[in-house]
Computed example of a mutant assay.
Amino acid sequence: MKGNAVAVCAPGLQEVQQMVCEQYTTTTEGTHIERPENQSVYKIGIYGWRKRCLYLFVLLLLIILLVNFALTIWILKVMWFSPTGMGHLRVMKDGLRLEGESEFLFSLYAKEIHSRVDSSLLLQSAKNVTVNACNSGGNVTGRLTVGPKMVEVQSQEFQINSEDGKPLFTVDEQEVVVGTDKLRVTGPEGALFEHSVETPLVSADPFEDLSLESPTRSLSMNAPKGVHIKAHAGKIEALSQMDVVFHSSDGMLVLDAETVCLPKLVQGTWGPAGSSQGLYEICVCPDGKLYLTVAGTGSTCHENSHICP
């Protein structure tokens, strides 16, 4: 029905002071309808202890936000964050630049490490400093360890070069090469070689003696074109507890000097009458032993051969 209101109430509940009714109203525009006096009002929102808890939670979040903001500002100030880096660390166009002293707690991986032009590079550790070189598979191919008592290098070859790239010292599994013009040994006991030594020249410093010594074994010098021993301003001594043997397989032994002295050479007996008492003859035993005998008009070596064993 147009312009009318229909109210439907539950029968038998008129005694209840507040009665819930459902009204279905259809009106036309401009029609005024009076609302019933008794109608229920529902409040929408959070009230009571729930409201207080909500405000307290919002306040707690605000406090946490302020504390985080203050800690962030403090960390930025302490760590010296800047648009170019952090603290002593600067991000450069060609890499990273670290000024002052820094401590690394774990491994450091870098392609190249170098110091400033006006200062040196110092790597310091409480125990040791280890530098490793690895291949693409992660295996260590070279290692340099600087410890408190020893410097250890693990590699297939160890080489020291000069400023112009000339090898000065090279060590591998086969040999040790010293590329300098002169190897100087300044120890008081000289140099000790357990095996053979190959060198074109062995010399001593000026005004110093050169000694080649083998305390318990023999000393041998071999060269395909000869061995030259020279003393420009002194004498050469060959001392041996046993025998000194000069052997020439294809040639002769030449003693070229103004005077050849054999002070402890065994002398033979006197020669026959009429011999030159001031002259001596050097005789050789079959085993190479030399002895002196008084020279005569002929050889007296056979007469005094009883000296030979």
Rank of each mutant, 00 (worst) to 15 (best):
Q39S: 07
I73T: 12
T130Y: 00
N132P: 07
W270Y: 07
Y47T: 15
S248L: 03
V227E: 02
P83H: 01
Q154G: 07
H247D: 05
A133S: 10
D181A: 08
L144Q: 02
Y280P: 00
D209P: 09
E29V: 09
H232P: 06
Q277R: 05
K264S: 13
E157W: 03
M150Q: 12
T84P: 03
I307G: 05
N68Y: 04
C283F: 01
G296C: 07
R143M: 13
R52T: 15
S248T: 02
T170Y: 02
H306P: 00
E152A: 15
G288Q: 03
V171S: 01
R35P: 08
G251M: 01
N139T: 12
H232T: 09
C308I: 00
A238C: 11
I229G: 06
T216N: 15
G278L: 04
Y55G: 06
T145L: 11
I160Y: 08
L262F: 13
L144V: 14
I75Q: 10
E103K: 10
F69Y: 11
F193V: 13
P188Y: 01
I73E: 15
T186P: 12
K235P: 03
L201N: 14
A191E: 02
A204S: 14
S248E: 00
S220A: 13
Q159W: 00
K149E: 06
L122E: 12
E157T: 11
E29R: 02
Y42D: 10
G271W: 01
R143W: 05
G137P: 06
V245P: 01
C261F: 04
C21K: 08
S102W: 08
F207M: 13
E303Y: 04
L59I: 11
P224T: 06
A295D: 02
K230S: 14
Y47M: 13
E258L: 12
G190V: 01
L62I: 11
V131G: 02
Y109C: 08
K182E: 14
G95F: 05
G268V: 01
F57Y: 10
I44M: 12
G147Q: 01
P83F: 04
W80N: 07
L89Q: 04
V227K: 00
S119N: 09
S249M: 09
F104C: 04
Y55F: 07
P36A: 12
F69K: 08
S248I: 12
H32D: 06
K182R: 08
G142R: 00
K93G: 08
G87D: 04
T141D: 12
A231Y: 00
